[in-house]
Write a protein that binds this DNA or RNA. Sequence first.
DNA 1: AAATAAATTTAGATTAGTCTAAAAATAGGT
DNA 2: ACCTATTTTTAGACTAATCTAAATTTATTT
Lengths: 218, 218
Amino acid sequence: MFSFSEENYLKAIFHLERKYQAGVSTNALAEEMETKASSVTDMIKKLSEKELVIYKKYQGVKLSELGNKTAIKVIRKHRLWEYFLVEKLDFNWDEVHDIAEQLEHIKSEKLTQELDKFLGFPKRDPHGDPIPDAQGNFSVANKMLLAELDKAEKGICVGVKDSSSEFLRFLDKNNISLGKEIKVLEKEAFDGSMLILIEERELRISQLISNNLYIKTQ
Amino acid sequence: MFSFSEENYLKAIFHLERKYQAGVSTNALAEEMETKASSVTDMIKKLSEKELVIYKKYQGVKLSELGNKTAIKVIRKHRLWEYFLVEKLDFNWDEVHDIAEQLEHIKSEKLTQELDKFLGFPKRDPHGDPIPDAQGNFSVANKMLLAELDKAEKGICVGVKDSSSEFLRFLDKNNISLGKEIKVLEKEAFDGSMLILIEERELRISQLISNNLYIKTQ
DNA sequence: AAATAAATTTAGATTAGTCTAAAAATAGGT
DNA sequence: ACCTATTTTTAGACTAATCTAAATTTATTT
């Protein structure tokens, strides 16, 4: 079907499209893929020939219908495997990304379906991201960043924006996990830090932290 | 670490070494890998530079200590995944080979260990082949081919030599599965076929079949 | 609107893995 | 021991994915 590299580009474009609806630039894609702009141009041409993306020179790329469908399939597999690793093999949520990056490219419709069934058709991966179903549908939660909450407001922690091992381990260390309620006690205008209440504990967190935690209000 | 292709060559050499202890020929390897002899020579050179095989021009190859260890790790993963697919995801034993061929290349020591633990440290895969443990040790069963049994002898079916989907489905259709007792009622010298007794049923099977079924006698 | 800066593409090279065709080495038969 | 057939290796080419460096296009600034 498609190569690992092609699938990785599609996934990257999919994610970047959320940020740049007008079209994903070559440089943005190069940064996301940790490669050079010239390599990106080459690959985009190939994806364009295969009708996976819409591309006009110098104008950036967008996923075609087919490209979108393909990207979602890869993301579905990635998130199902992450769920499997955490729920069945006792991995911590900070250890699963790199392994899922490999597993997401395994080609077998039946495997994906059976895995989904075995896991009980989970709706979200360990980082709170929605898992697309077999038809490619997934819920787009009405979540917001903790940093956007005002003083005295509260919400449930539902996801992380940064899912690096470093950030996740920081959260573990401070006993912040998905599903817990967080209330903003104070906001410091000077540095953007905030004092929060979580499980009876008061905790001061920097803006970098609150900018990477997704919250659902009420 | 090593590429998919390198790992596949190591695995192929490992399997062929059982047949050709003196060294695996370029042509034998080419046939096993379904590629050309010239491609094999190129790859052998690379494996030799990486000290995975012992190679002298025109003399065939053998796995080095490192090559052997590496091949066994890949085989361990292949068989663990096959077990997973059959026991946890309800795959039939004839459907798992190609998927395991992909999964065997996933790189993560921890994943392999946790999967092994999750599965309860199984000793054999769905085709009766032994699963190497974390140290690379596995039992070499004292099995023989059904075709080698004489009239009136019996044994337990413990494995298959050919694990193609076609052969396995033939066995399913005739209700022959691992663990069942088979008794040889008659042997036909002319065509090598035999009449066997399995679960009260009498069945005539060709030599091609009896040559691909492993039996353990007491 | 021209000059400059930034982004993007092109040209040409590189590596891994493969191929075909030709050359070289080994093995077998007499 | 020689001739022939088979096996194996070498030489040169191809594709996918990448790179550097140069050229081109677009964007920004004055």
